[in-house]
Amino acid sequence: LEAAGILRELANYLDVHIPSAQLIAIAIGVVSAVIDNVPIVAATMGMYDLTSFPRDADFWQLVAFCAGTGGSMLIIGSAAGVAFMGMEKVDFFWYLRKVSGFAFAGFTAGIAAYLVGQSLHFSLPDSLPAIPFVSGS
Rank of each mutant, 00 (worst) to 15 (best):
T51W: 10
G46V: 12
T44C: 05
G29D: 01
T51N: 15
D49R: 05
Y48R: 05
V41R: 03
V34S: 04
R55L: 15
W60T: 13
D58Y: 06
I28G: 00
L62S: 03
V63W: 00
F53S: 08
P39T: 14
W60S: 08
V41S: 00
A33M: 12
S32C: 07
A57E: 10
C66S: 09
Y48C: 08
P54N: 13
V31P: 01
P54I: 07
I40M: 07
A42Y: 09
V31E: 04
I35L: 08
I35P: 06
D49W: 06
D56V: 15
S52K: 15
D49T: 11
M45T: 07
I35Q: 00
S52T: 15
V63I: 10
S32N: 04
Y48Q: 13
D56I: 15
I35V: 14
N37Q: 08
N37W: 01
P39S: 08
A43T: 08
F65R: 12
Q61S: 10
D36F: 01
A42C: 13
D56F: 15
L62Q: 03
A27L: 12
I28R: 01
G46M: 06
A42F: 14
P39Q: 09
F65E: 12
V30N: 04
L50G: 10
T44H: 03
A33F: 02
M45N: 03
R55D: 15
A64W: 00
A64H: 00
Q61W: 01
C66L: 11
D36T: 09
S32A: 10
F65M: 11
P39H: 10
V31M: 06
A27K: 03
A33D: 10
F59R: 07
D56Y: 14
F65S: 10
D49Y: 06
V30Q: 05
